[in-house]
């Protein structure tokens, strides 16, 4: 479902003397349906860079990344938007939302975009919020005022509210207590068991052992400084 071949990435810092940072070269990996692959490697080795290229917010300078058959290198914005709408899900580390929008709507939004009616979408959003222990009295409030752990769980709820066939997870268990961590890990296992292709960064070693079917060390893709 995810195929990365010979991918290179560099950053050109035009406003810092035109410095060119070659950060990645020859990156390759494959994630099939029903797999959960964990990216490992020291801080700065390029785990997040690789994830961002697959999500589409970093440009791919060379090589090819295909997600569910769609080539992302040089893809038109509308193709990436369509891919994200129904196929490629993402749990980032930060929640970015329009202020004032109630939590329930934030979580239901991906379903609404897919054309589901409001009642059904909000019922599903409520179910996943309950599972992640976000009390119902918080649902009508904007998550911008929530604690870090609560925001993270809202983010996770949004990332699991639709059964995306491909999922990218960036530190999904960071800043969660033991109980909520267990809920998130079981959500990941369920997604994997229904056949989702999952790629994630987990600094939490226990989590990695529990959910990952395989690890890929990105250190080999890094360009030596």
């Amino acid at each position: 479902m995810i195929t990365v071949r010979d991918v290179a990435k560099r950053f050109t810092l035009h406003n810092q003397g035109g410095a060119v940072l070659e950060v990645m070269d020859g990156a390759a990996l494959e994630v099939g349906a029903g797999e959960c692959v964990g990216l490992v490697g020291a801080s700065g080795a390029g785990k997040s860079t690789l994830m961002r290229m697959i999500w589409g917010n970093y440009r791919i300078d060379a090589g090819s990344i295909r997600v569910a058959g769609v080539e992302l290198a040089g893809a038109a914005p509308r193709d990436v938007i369509a891919l994200r709408r129904g196929t490629l899900g993402h749990v980032s580390q930060f929640l970015r939302v329009v202020p004032r929008v109630p939590t329930l709507e934030v979580v239901a939004e991906p379903l609404r975009v897919l054309g589901m009616d409001a009642t059904e979408a909000e019922t599903r959003a409520g179910a996943i919020l309950s599972r992640l222990n976000i009390p119902e009295r918080l649902w009508p409030l904007s998550p911008t005022t929530f604690s870090g752990g609560e925001q993270q769980r809202v983010n996770i709820a949004r990332g699991f509210v639709h059964p995306w066939p491909v999922l990218l997870l960036d530190e999904p268990t960071a800043s969660l207590d033991a109980g909520n961590r267990a809920v998130v890990l079981s959500l990941i296992e369920e997604a994997r068991n229904r056949g989702a292709a999952i790629l994630g960064i987990f600094h939490d070693e226990g989590a990695r052992t529990q959910v990952c079917t395989r690890l890929v060390d990105v250190s080999g893709f890094a360009v030596a400084a």
Partner: peptide, 18 residues
């Protein structure tokens, strides 16, 4: 020009970076 989050997160042109 491009996808909004790509232009903002990985700007290519000197002016966009600025």
């Amino acid at each position: 020009e491009g996808l909004t989050d790509q232009v903002l997160d990985d700007p290519q042109h000197a002016y966009t970076q600025l």
